[in-house]
């Protein structure tokens, strides 16, 4: 086998392999603590119901439609159709000491959003909605 044939064979093999098959990705890639930190904010101003109202308003501001929402469990899942399809699940949990934790998770197709800046933007938007709800502007 000369060098040229070998190289061609290598390229052909790579092409056939493509994106190699992987075992089912069940547990995700990020470390649990880092992921939680990036995706979670705590608020000490509003009750759970008002926080959920604000989350729904924020999602609508960001162009999402709500797939499902459960006030008791504090879970909202929403979808946005754009040049890509983004799905988000936001959970609202009451903590001790009158604090409310909001956790957001977004995914585009097969890719989980891991960039902390994206979640930062979401929480900035949520902050604004919280302010409007709290001050009874709407």
């Amino acid at each position: 086998m000369n060098r040229q044939t070998r190289t061609t064979a290598l390229v052909a093999m790579l092409l056939i392999t493509g994106c190699a098959t992987t075992p089912p990705d069940v547990v995700g890639a990020g470390t649990q603590l880092e992921t939680r930190q990036a995706q979670t904010r705590e608020f000490d101003t509003l009750d759970k119901a008002m926080t959920m109202r604000s989350v729904v308003a924020t999602l609508q501001d960001l162009g999402f439609t709500i797939d499902q929402a459960d006030a008791d469990l504090g879970t909202i899942t929403a979808t946005r159709l754009d040049t890509y399809t983004m799905r988000m699940t936001v959970t609202v949990v009451a903590k001790t000491g009158d604090r409310i934790a909001v956790r957001a998770f977004a995914r585009v197709g097969e890719n989980a959003i891991t960039d902390p800046a994206t979640y930062q933007d979401f929480f900035i938007a949520l902050d604004k909605a919280m302010f409007l709800t709290q001050n009874q502007v709407d």
């Binding site: 960001l62 933007d121 900035i124």
Partner: peptide
């Protein structure tokens, strides 16, 4: 080309108002 095929595309500013 192979790398590009596998690359993840994360939209920037996706959740910015």
């Amino acid at each position: 080309a192979l790398l590009a095929g596998c690359a993840t595309t994360t939209p920037t500013y996706a959740l910015r108002l």
